[in-house]
């Protein structure tokens, strides 16, 4: 049940969105609404996938905020030109994101420093680098990149969402995917049966960095400008997505798909509040309640199923 928490919450949020939207505007959402939601949510979806991989190994990545900021700054600065050149630069940004993540991975696995502390320190370093690259908000992105990534008229974002989900479905069936769960469930046992836990951790942090890089590219593509503080909100929202998505903080339980559902739900909640006519100042109150209630529902559901199992 807990594994499906994210989907239950997502369905409930979509229902609430449709009800609130249609009662407020007297019609159903149009394709324009769906498209703008899709493009707004993509960065968080990517960060949440990366965060969920790290949480699955029992860690946490606070530096996603710094990596997103750095990659946003770099994207807005270096991705220029036309034809295929800008896509080459996008690849460079993705490599940079993965490299930043790998630094976390090395410190966590070889340096044996707790993930929350490692990424707390690197968060500061990456944010500093972002400010160095782009001291004031600005920069731009070539229209050709925008058309391919988050086209305002055609749902190209769906393709990338599909690629991300497909990537996860493949990854979890690979040896690496199995090992992620093994390390998260019980690291000592995993080591005992020969799982190279250090390399697995290095891998998940690098992948989380890659996901943050992707998020940054989509962020710049949607907002058409860069800001060295763009990443900060993603720290807490990515953790919230992972939690709502039913991934256990102790590691080893849950899936990145749940985190995707959590991220979509969290993005939709803002629209629900908007169309329900709630003062935007109260927005974080309801987001906070949403987070706690969603997790409480998961706990209650687990208790109920366990009791039912005990009876039968």
């Amino acid at each position: 049940m807990r594994d499906r928490l994210g989907y239950v919450v997502l369905v409930a949020t979509i229902a609430a969105y449709l009800v609130v939207y249609s009662s407020s505007l007297g019609r159903l959402p149009t394709s324009f609404d769906y498209l703008s939601i899709l493009n707004t949510m993509l960065p968080l979806v990517f960060v949440a996938i990366g965060q969920s991989l790290v949480v699955l190994t029992g860690g946490i990545d606070l530096s996603v905020g710094g990596i997103v900021s750095l990659c946003v700054a770099v994207t807005a600065t270096i991705v220029t030109g036309d034809g295929l050149a800008p896509f080459g630069w996008v690849l460079v940004v993705l490599v940079l994101g993965a490299a930043c993540g790998a630094v976390n991975g090395v410190i966590v696995s070889a340096g044996r420093i707790a993930p929350i502390l490692t990424t707390l320190a690197t968060l500061s370093i990456f944010t500093g680098l972002a400010l160095w690259v782009l001291p004031v908000p600005g920069g731009s992105i070539p229209p050709v990149v925008r058309n391919v990534l988050s086209n305002p008229n055609v749902p190209t974002g769906l393709i990338w969402l599909g690629v991300a989900i497909g990537g996860w479905l493949v990854l979890r069936r690979t040896r690496f995917g199995m090992r992620v769960y093994a390390v998260g469930s019980d690291e000592t046992s995993a080591r005992a049966v020969g799982v190279p836990a250090a390399r697995v951790k290095l891998g998940v942090y690098a992948l989380s960095g890659l996901c943050s890089g992707l998020a940054a590219v989509f962020y710049v593509s949607t907002t058409t400008a860069g800001d060295a503080n763009a990443g900060a909100p993603f720290i807490l929202t990515s953790i919230a997505s992972v939690v709502v998505g039913g991934v256990a903080f102790s590691g080893g339980r849950g899936s990145a798909l749940g985190a995707v559902a959590g991220a979509v739900a969290l993005t939709l909640v803002i629209d629900v509040l908007f169309f329900a006519g709630i003062d935007p100042l109260y927005q974080s109150l309801f987001q906070g309640l949403f987070l706690v209630v969603a997790v409480l529902l998961g706990t209650v559901a687990t208790l109920v199923t366990r009791r039912r199992r005990a009876v039968t």
């Binding site: 807490l236 953790i239 919230a240 100042l281 109260y282 927005q283 974080s284 109150l285 309801f286 987001q287 906070g288 309640l289 987070l291 706690v292």
Partner: peptide, 9 residues
């Protein structure tokens, strides 16, 4: 984290 949001709101 939820409490932080509630108090902020």
């Amino acid at each position: 984290l939820g409490m932080n949001g509630v108090l902020q709101g």
